[in-house]
Simulated scan of single mutants.
Amino acid sequence: MQHAAYVFDAYGTLFDVHAAVRRHADEIGPDGNRFSELWRAKQLEYSWVRTLMGTYTDFWQLTEQALDYCLRRFPSVDPAIRTKLLDAYWRLDCYPEVPAVLKALKATGAKLAILSNGSPEMLKAAAQSSALDQVLDDIFSVDAVRRFKTDPAVYEMVTLQWRLYPKAISFQSSNRWDVAGAAKFGFGTAWINRSNQPDEYNDFPPRLILPSLEGLLASG
């Protein structure tokens, strides 16, 4: 099925959220993998809690708060590395297949966008760092609605801006909970299951389950 538009989650889907810690792995030491996993987990936890409480705080502040928690949780990691890690988060590596896949989808005439919890500044910096800004038509940040995924208002931004029905849009995310939220809203969804995680949210299944974005080119 050919879609009129392809919309991508940013962190974990286009950009490797663990790249910042990996870049400074020697300085962080043996707790690096656990540190990075917790940083990501807390970042997301804070976004959900803030939305439930109705006290929006932009994603960059949540990223900083999550990092500060991790530095307290892992006293073996020198707190002096904080600035380096935050700087690295602005220039996360994109996954290897991403540029070619987005260019190929763009060549079909489809519209392309990011839809992310990230702040506008974070997303602009990440897209420019990977040169993805050259193929994207839009970057949608939850900052516009001041609620995080999976609030329906987040997904609705795309349909309102582009004047498309949800079914005309294919939404891709590596986060199964994000795929569930998008599926409930009515998007066609692709779960980019990069780490071969077990499925969940069975009442909101994805249209596709793929190990990387490359599968989009074969499936339409």
Rank of each mutant, 00 (worst) to 15 (best):
M1H: 12
M1G: 11
H3L: 05
A5Q: 05
V7T: 01
F8S: 04
D9R: 00
Y11D: 04
L14V: 04
D16A: 03
D16V: 03
V17H: 14
H18W: 08
A20H: 12
R22E: 11
H24F: 11
H24M: 05
H24L: 05
D26I: 07
D26S: 13
I28S: 10
I28A: 04
G29L: 02
P30E: 04
G32K: 15
N33G: 13
R34Q: 11
R34W: 14
S36D: 12
S36Q: 14
E37A: 10
L38A: 08
R40L: 04
L44W: 13
W48H: 06
W48D: 07
T51I: 06
G54Y: 06
Y56D: 13
W60G: 05
L62K: 08
T63I: 03
A66G: 06
D68A: 10
D68C: 03
C70V: 02
L71E: 08
R72S: 10
R73T: 13
F74W: 10
F74H: 11
P75T: 04
S76V: 04
V77I: 10
V77P: 13
P79V: 00
A80Q: 12
A80D: 10
T83W: 07
T83H: 10
K84Y: 15
D87C: 04
Y89M: 04
W90K: 13
L92G: 02
L92E: 07
C94I: 06
Y95W: 05
P96V: 03
P96M: 01
E97N: 13
K103Q: 09
L105E: 00
K106L: 01
L115M: 04
S116Q: 02
P120R: 09
E121R: 05
A125C: 09
A131T: 01
L132D: 01
L132A: 05
Q134M: 11
Q134G: 11
I139W: 00
F140G: 05
S141P: 07
S141W: 00
S141K: 02
V142I: 06
A144V: 12
A144C: 09
R146H: 15
F148D: 03
F148A: 03
K149S: 14
T150M: 11
D151Y: 06
P152V: 02
P152W: 11
V154N: 12
V154M: 09
V154Q: 10
V154H: 07
M157K: 03
T159G: 09
T159S: 10
W162P: 02
L164Q: 03
F171C: 02
F171A: 03
Q172D: 15
R176Y: 11
D178T: 04
G181A: 01
A182G: 15
A182T: 12
A183R: 08
K184R: 14
F187R: 01
G188C: 15
A190H: 07
W191E: 13
I192F: 09
N193D: 09
N193C: 05
R194S: 07
N196L: 12
D199M: 13
D203T: 00
D203R: 03
P206H: 05
R207P: 15
L208I: 11
L210N: 08
L210C: 02
L213I: 15
G215P: 00
G215T: 06
L217P: 08
L217F: 06
S219R: 13
G220D: 11
